[in-house]
Design a protein around this nucleic acid. Structure first.
Lengths: 145, 145
DNA sequence: ATTTTTTAATTGCATGTACAAACAAATGAG
DNA sequence: CTCATTTGTTTGTACATGCAATTAAAAAAT
């Protein structure tokens, strides 16, 4: 058989990264009206859901490195969308009034993202794929730690 | 039911990115002995496979933006692993002697990456996941273009 | 109580990636 | 033939992310 279009298509490193870039682009377009990049939006949604949440918990929830969370929080605080309150070594994050106000728009953008990839992939494929990628991500993460 | 450990586990943006980061970390560890980051390694493997390949074709094969390929080629050329020859507006990329020499090590690292995630996920799960992420990535890409 | 260890958060640095704009060359239209 | 359009490549800029090292606080050990 001839060489496939994408010779690395049997490599999970390749495929997973290609998929992540693709769906990230979709999400960026969907979140663009809110003025926030998807990662920032997800952090802000989490903070809205759990006012007073700590960076460590945000990192766990989003499977991100703590330093990454610090950077995202800096940006959101710089835009006046949340505030960090230090108490000892701990930090507690609360949404600001502006941060609360955009919350519905973020949820709408999130739904829009979902609708877009479901339209391309089909609902059941999307669901299976999401579930498969999620459990694999968890399996890989717990392996390393 | 209680809130899941990762409240975004039903979101493909979240899951796909988490998976990509996890498998990228695995690949980085596997490719570390070669001294190359995985993306650089994949480009160099492609160049070894197709001496004289053009950046545009590399971008297509790897599903990367052409500018990204330029950056990767810059780095590889800076390390003396390949050479770019300009001919009109086209560029042809050839592996250098050093670039040819590391090729077997890169293939070994690639196999090692595969072995590691198969050990965590199981062979059939890994295969299905790779296939699913690959076709979804292709579907999303062709949608945008 | 002092010292050691663990923990939470941040900072410096590096990487991979994309988009928009620039540029140069090739191709097509008049 | 000249001019406009398309095409391949590169630059400038920006962002998300991680690791290693650092700081500061809390907890544990002595």
């Amino acid at each position: 058989m001839a060489e496939p279009l994408h010779p690395y298509c049997r490599c999970l490193f390749y495929s997973a990264n290609a998929l992540a870039r693709g769906v990230t682009r979709l999400a960026e377009e969907a979140f663009a009206p809110s003025g926030l990049a998807p990662s920032l939006a997800f952090v802000l949604m989490s903070v809205n859901r759990h006012p007073g949440i700590q960076p460590k918990e945000l990192a766990r929830i989003m499977m991100l490195h703590p330093s990454t969370v610090t950077r995202l929080l800096e940006k959101l605080e710089g835009r006046g969308l949340l505030r960090r309150r230090s108490e000892g070594k701990a930090v507690f994050v609360h949404p600001s009034a502006a941060g609360k106000k955009v919350y519905p728009a973020l949820q709408a953008a999130w739904r829009h993202t979902y609708a877009r990839y479901v339209r391309v992939l089909g609902e059941s494929v999307a669901r299976d794929l999401t579930e498969g990628t999620y459990s694999a991500a968890v399996a890989l993460e717990t392996t390393s730690a």
